[in-house]
Nucleic acid binder design. Structure first.
Length: 103
DNA sequence: GGCGTGACGTCAG
DNA sequence: ACTGACGCCACGC
């Protein structure tokens, strides 16, 4: 296991996200060592979410909104987050000032 | 084995 | 302030 590898770092970070908090792609990428590695985080979530049992629903975009298309994960993610205590605004937006996972 | 794609983000104009 | 283009790397075809 290349614990220094970006992918491994990103996975570890995602697994460290506490319940009731959310993280952004850029945040994970930055903490993992690559500021512009947001796309790799996407790949990880798409391919390794079930393999590594990652809380993919805690990952949202920089605007605090869910990127998934309606009817294909959007509602599911929103529901899961609400169950963890995350509150959505009128525009289905999460208040990152309160719920963003801060190391 | 090479090319395109992907739940985004940042930089430059 | 806004829009367009680039960037990073793993995985599928």
């Amino acid at each position: 296991m290349k614990d220094n590898d970006f992918t491994s770092q990103a996975i570890s970070l995602i697994q460290r996200i506490p319940r009731g908090k959310v993280a952004t792609y850029g945040q994970i990428a930055d903490l993992a060592g690559n500021r512009r590695g947001a796309r790799m985080v996407v790949r990880i979530l798409n391919s390794s979410c079930e393999k590594y049992d990652l809380p993919w629903h805690r990952i949202v975009n920089r605007q605090g909104q869910i990127s998934l298309p309606r009817g294909n994960g959007y509602e599911l993610q929103k529901e899961l987050l609400e169950k963890e205590g995350v509150v959505f605004g009128s525009e289905d937006t999460i208040d990152l000032r309160k719920y963003l996972w801060q190391e």
